[in-house]
């Protein structure tokens, strides 16, 4: 008799081990749950709420929810997809996400998840916030218009790179990402192009400088297959190559 513990995800039995979250177990089993602030390499955060699922009638954040036996998880009903789509629409109108002019288009996790949930319009009135570009760093450029405040760069810089370059400042809709430097500029931090924090952004908010549109249309990460098949941008080699080898020309 099998002692494997399982829960049900859209009717399918998903095995899990003690301590694993619903997200961890689902991804391990090859089942995709849409997410943005979650990166399996790092501690879960539960801030973007895109991974919301229905568990026994309650809405839960699957990246922070420990899996347990007997769970009946709804990941793909129309009701759940509608919830996610609404959350995405709010993310889109909160910032300035102009996909046609964004060099991350086609390889952007935010855009790919929006496609995956069938988001066709922003629905809500755009905030059109006035946000700047910080191009002071010699190798990296920061587009605050595209930041969704997922906090991944903050966590990774603090916990993995041990530099704590970023912080979230302000409250509510005035929350913004800042650099922990006397000038408030990226150039005055210890951030390096090889830092892990630079490669984890799910949008086009952190990009290598002097590079753009170098991957032809048709060869970008999500040009041919949806994110549910391809997976996260940060996990994909071509998406990371500019950052991780320290030589953007390679």
């Amino acid at each position: 008799m099998s002692t494997e513990k399982t829960f049900r995800l859209d009717g399918k039995a998903i095995p899990f081990e003690d301590g694993e979250t619903v997200m961890d177990a689902a991804l391990k089993a090859g089942e995709y749950i849409p997410h943005l602030c979650h990166n399996p390499d790092f501690e879960p955060h539960g801030s973007c709420r895109i991974c919301v699922v229905d568990v026994n009638g309650r809405h839960q954040c699957s990246c922070t929810l420990p899996a347990s036996e007997g769970m009946d998880v709804d990941n793909s009903s129309e009701a759940i997809t509608n919830k996610r789509r609404t959350l995405l629409q709010m993310l889109f109108v909160e910032g300035n996400h102009v996909c046609p002019a964004c060099e991350k288009s086609g390889a952007c996790q935010l855009q790919a998840v929006a496609y995956q949930t069938g988001m066709l319009n922003p629905h809500f009135t755009h905030f059109f916030p006035k946000r700047s570009i910080d191009a002071s760093h010699p190798d990296i450029v920061f587009y605050f218009n595209r930041c969704i405040l997922c906090g991944l760069c903050v966590r990774v810089s603090r916990d993995v790179d041990k530099k704590a370059v970023f912080s979230l400042s302000g409250r509510g809709h005035r929350t913004r990402i800042i650099f922990n430097s006397p000038s408030g500029k990226a150039v005055d931090t210890e951030l390096a192009i090889t830092d892990k924090a630079v490669s984890v952004c799910p949008t086009g908010a952190i990009l290598p400088k002097h590079h753009g549109y170098e991957t032809p249309v048709g060869e970008r990460l999500y040009d041919c297959l949806p994110i549910s098949v391809v997976g996260d941008a940060a996990k994909h080699h071509t998406a990371k190559k500019h950052f991780l080898n320290g030589d953007p020309d390679e």
Partner: peptide, 9 residues
């Protein structure tokens, strides 16, 4: 205010 490498697109 935009980066130069964006210009062609």
């Amino acid at each position: 205010g935009r980066p130069y490498w964006e210009l062609p697109v």
